[in-house]
């Protein structure tokens, strides 16, 4: 099991943070384009899921998987979106994504008055804490699958 990469978006589609661990193949387009593509897809899939839902939705879109990877999605009512790509062996990780939001993003970025909101996070502390948290996850393994 392994973690490939992580995106953090705000409500306006700005990519607040991106980091990657075991990503062997790049998308082959500039990072800016990739973020836009990712956000656009999330935006569409979200509205698609809510339109198609036969019942009133609770949490909405949670994850999708392909033959090679799984994309996990978590969104707060304020529109902060945490997206993590892992391999297929990883189960539901809502609590992990919630932890990244509540214990890392809110504590280290939102509560830091010197960190402007709505643009790429510059905080070195946030980066390093996030990195060590992800590395400490039980399904994070150096032997990339």
């Amino acid at each position: 099991m392994t973690v490939h990469n992580l995106y953090l978006f705000d409500r306006n589609g700005v990519c607040l943070h991106y980091s990657e661990w075991h990503r062997k193949k790049q998308a082959g387009i500039p990072k800016e384009e990739e973020f836009k593509l990712m956000y656009g897809m999330l935006f569409s899939i979200r509205s698609f899921v809510s339109k198609m839902s036969p019942l009133d939705m609770k949490d909405g879109f949670l994850a999708f998987q392909t033959s090679r990877y799984k994309l996990h999605y978590y969104e707060t009512p304020t529109g902060i979106k945490v997206v993590m790509n892992t391999d297929l062996g990883v189960g539901p990780i809502r609590d992990v994504l919630h932890h990244i939001y509540s214990a890392l993003y809110v504590e280290l970025v939102v509560k830091n008055p010197l960190c402007p909101l709505g643009q790429t996070v510059q905080s070195e502390l946030f980066r390093s804490r996030l990195d060590s948290y992800v590395r400490s996850l039980p399904f994070f393994s150096a032997r990339a699958g």
Binding site: T76, P77, T78, I80, V106, V110, K111, L114, L117
Partner: peptide, 25 residues
């Protein structure tokens, strides 16, 4: 302003509120 008042406090406080309270939409 480095010391955000009112509105600016709210903009940040809501994130803290959601992180701690587990209130949904």
């Amino acid at each position: 302003c480095f010391l955000p008042r009112g509105y600016n406090i709210g903009v940040r406080l809501i994130e803290d509120f959601l992180a701690r309270s587990n209130v949904g939409k």
